[in-house]
Write a protein that binds this DNA or RNA. Structure first.
Length: 376
RNA sequence: GCCUACUUAGCUCAGUCGGUAGAGCAUGCGGCUGUUAACCGCAGGGUCGUUGGUUCGAGUCCAACAGUGGGCG
């Protein structure tokens, strides 16, 4: 349940209460696709980097170890030892990113497993059943994510189908939550706005899904090919039609600058693979901008990654050591980089919240939006 | 000492019937936005051990020498 604490223009400071605890918004969800943050972080590590919400993936967990297995083991919370809120993505994005061999019908989607090529069918009901078995705090609607730009005719058709799917998701979730042996009978459901880069489709779609009175609303289908300014414009267009009393989630976004700009436009919740993936690849987010620790200029640099950072890596280890570890392909290098980057993202959200509480958000945004996305 | 194999990019190696050289790794740089991603892309880098010979033309065929490995004494 979302509680709006205060507003600064369209920017919102709030909190969201669930059966697995309350988290403060704006918030960033740390991506643990297969039930773990890639780079070797445990649930304890997640707590240490200040994570409030973990995000895992329906599709991946369905394939391995199997959602039935997870259910028998007591759910993903028990399995991973993360006892805070977990949001599961629905699998809709995988249909998009594993686009090779797929067939989308009114019923759902046929596509092949990236692990063994096996044919998989997933529709709204299947996605809800899997997420129910995983026992996540928040389930995402099964949607179709399309690339930008896409032809208007297709976007229109797809967005309308996603609304019909959403109604089916809601019915199925209600049914599952009412079963006596369901892991989490209070599982929440967020709807997802689609409509590509067409303002009127976005707005119509948002109005339609708002009527279903869900627990939260996401903006999907952004940061998938369109220019950044276009993404901001779509948020501006959709925001007035999003319920004020529901949490708002911008899916898959983004860079620190993207997040600040989206908070300014009224978004409460984010997730992105960037801090983890780019970290593993040697790109580190700092309060001075983005650093590529692979660069030879750091070979003998004894200073911490970011002297302004309080993470466990910056407190003890040098740029030279981290560069060495990553160049030497040591697991510890990736782990350190991901710990640092996630700490940075979670601290970014904390500072955004503090600035909203103190009424200094605009000056914070002024100072950091471009700086944090720039290269050192 | 004799026999034999090898010598091409920093490293490990390809290189067809003779037509002025490629890869992987390494190095340097870049990319990554609801993770098929410890991944992907680009770039720099070679008087083909040396000296001769054959040939219109040799990394490639021949000889000698040098170095390295293996075998036999």
């Amino acid at each position: 349940m979302y509680k709006l604490i205060r507003q600064a223009g369209t920017a919102r400071r709030g909190e969201f209460t669930t059966v697995h605890g309350t988290f403060q918004t704006p918030a960033f969800m740390n991506v643990a696709t297969a039930g773990a943050i890639k780079g070797g972080l445990s649930a304890d590590d997640l707590r240490n980097v200040g994570c409030q919400v973990m995000l895992s993936n329906t599709y991946h967990l369905h394939l391995r170890p199997g959602d039935d297995v997870i259910r028998h083991l007591g759910g993903l919370h028990k399995l991973s030892c993360w006892n805070g809120p977990i949001l599961t993505d629905s699998g809709g994005f995988q249909v998009f990113s594993l686009a090779k061999l797929r067939k989308i019908t009114e019923e759902g989607t046929h596509f092949s497993s990236h692990i063994d090529g096996k044919n998989i069918f997933m529709g709204p009901e299947q996605s809800m059943q899997i997420q129910s078995n995983i026992g996540s705090t928040i389930a995402m609607a099964f949607d179709e994510c399309i690339e930008n730009p896409s032809p208007r005719e297709y976007v229109e058709k797809s967005a309308a189908r996603t609304v019909r799917w959403l109604a089916r998701c809601k019915n199925e979730m209600n049914r599952l939550n009412s079963l006596p042996d369901t892991l989490n009978q209070h599982q929440l459901l967020f709807g997802i706005n689609q409509g590509g880069c067409y303002d009127d489709i976005r707005i119509d779609n948002m109005k339609s899904i708002a009527e279903l009175d869900l627990d939260g609303y996401a903006i999907g289908g952004l940061a998938v090919g369109e220019p950044t300014e276009e993404m901001y414009r779509i948020i501006d267009v959709v925001e007035p039609h999003m319920p004020k009393d529901k949490i708002r989630y911008l899916m898959g976004v983004g860079t620190p600058g993207n997040i600040i700009e989206a908070v300014r436009r009224g978004v409460d919740l984010f997730d992105c693979v960037m801090p983890a993936r780019n970290g593993r690849h040697g790109h580190l987010f700092t309060w001075q901008g983005i650093m590529n620790i692979n660069n030879s200029k750091y070979i003998e640099d004894n200073s911490p990654i970011d002297s302004a950072c309080g993470c466990e890596v910056c407190k003890k280890y040098s740029r030279a050591y981290l560069r060495h570890l990553i160049k030497a392909n040591e697991m510890l290098g990736m782990r350190f980089a991901v710990i640092h980057n996630l700490y940075f993202y979670n601290e970014l959200m904390l500072k955004i919240r503090d600035s909203l509480d103190e009424g200094t958000f605009e000056s914070f945004a002024e100072k950091y939006t471009d700086l944090l996305d720039s290269r050192i």
